[in-house]
């Protein structure tokens, strides 16, 4: 039995309400049971802030996850939304199905480096391919925390485990995978930098299609020691911001250079921090990332975005109404209609 108390519901008297009259505290979930100091908890706080700032009604959100420390976190935010804690590595399938059935909800999938890049790598790739409209957060700490700290598929060569042995196998960079497979929103951030992370999450939520955010999220218990390349200290030394993103929901905002105008008229404003970096050139971004990775730098920011992609519903020409809102006769038109359809395939 734990003696731990819950976070008191009482809040700062001056806490501001958003357009829905809700405070930031209304977007929280239950108390985290992750280790104290886990990067994932900071990401949870960033999610809470982003959803509150965008005034998204919690009951219009579906939270999806697989298995792992990261996949526990949907419990810790948006206590009044829908959720599905699915099978290990299979969150993309569930997300795809949910989105196919009800395209009007806001989808957020939370996964980890094990869930996405080991057991679920195939699912991850096909989710990108299908361009399912979903905010996909990969909480990346380089280890399997729940099973006591084995190297994961994102561990860098030479990075040391807690007991001292160095990793020998090359890492999978999820950002490069996403770029290669045609993702139209690719970002990387750090759990310890909410100033960067919150605007990225907001921009991702407005993106019309699959939005991928890789977040370096130190495992304070198994991967925060000297010699680790995913520790708080190492991350702070080696992360380099190449693009800063601002999300501008006002539709009348004057569009400037470097802005990406989204389908609903809102704007993601990108400010290049690194000279010569072009966040609209997919090949150039891939090359830039690879080159800097070799130099030991981990680049952060909204690395690539394009408003051009067509999401799953556009590709599949699905009905515009969520299935739940369709009249039964239309959803299930009967045997005659099925026969007619089958005949058309002959």
């Amino acid at each position: 039995m734990t003696t731990s108390i819950n976070k008191p519901r009482v809040h700062h008297p001056d806490l501001a309400p958003n357009a829905l009259g809700l405070t930031r505290r209304d977007y929280e979930g239950t108390m985290s049971t992750l280790c104290a100091g886990c990067g994932h908890d900071s990401i949870t706080a960033a999610i809470v802030r982003a959803f509150w700032e965008l005034s998204i009604p919690p009951y219009r959100v579906a939270k999806l996850s697989g298995i792992g420390c990261s996949s526990k976190t949907p419990t810790y935010f948006l206590r009044e939304s829908h959720g599905f804690n699915s099978v290990h590595g299979r969150m993309p399938s569930v997300a795809t199905g949910a989105n196919a059935a009800n395209r009007d909800l806001v989808y957020i999938g939370v996964s980890g480096d094990g869930d996405s890049l080991s057991i679920g790598l195939g699912q991850f790739c096909h989710l990108i391919r299908r361009n399912v409209k979903l905010l996909y957060l990969l909480e990346n700490n380089g280890v399997y925390g729940l099973t006591k700290g084995q190297f994961s598929a994102t561990a860098d060569i030479g990075s040391k485990a807690k007991r001292g042995e160095a990793n020998q196998q090359g890492p999978i960079d999820p950002v490069l995978v996403a770029l290669t497979l045609g993702a139209t929103f690719v970002a990387r951030s750090f759990s310890g930098d909410k100033e960067e992370l919150v605007p990225i999450i907001k921009a991702a939520l407005a993106h019309n299609g699959f939005a991928f955010v890789d977040i370096i999220s130190p495992c304070v218990t198994f991967n925060d020691h000297e010699g680790s390349t995913k520790s708080y200290a190492y991350s702070r030394e080696h992360l380099h911001k190449v693009v800063e993103a601002d999300f501008v929901p006002l539709r009348k905002e004057i569009v400037g250079t470097g802005d990406v105008t989204l389908h609903d008229g809102s704007v993601v404003r990108l400010r290049k921090v690194a000279p010569g970096y072009d966040p609209s050139d997919r090949d150039a971004v891939s090359g830039y990332l690879r080159k800097h990775h070799e130099a030991g730098e981990v680049l952060t920011g909204l690395l690539y975005q394009s408003a051009d992609g067509r999401d799953m519903h556009a590709i599949e020409k699905t009905v515009a109404t969520p299935l739940v809102d369709l009249p039964y006769e239309q959803l299930c038109p009967g045997g005659a209609a099925l026969e007619k359809l089958q005949r058309s395939f002959k």
């Binding site: 009482v10 700062h12 908890d41 949870t44 759990s191 304070v220």
Partner: peptide, 14 residues
């Protein structure tokens, strides 16, 4: 302090 933000995130009264 390792600046993990855990205290800031948990504080009920900011």
């Amino acid at each position: 302090c390792i600046e993990c933000d855990a205290c800031i995130d948990i504080c009920p009264v900011d």
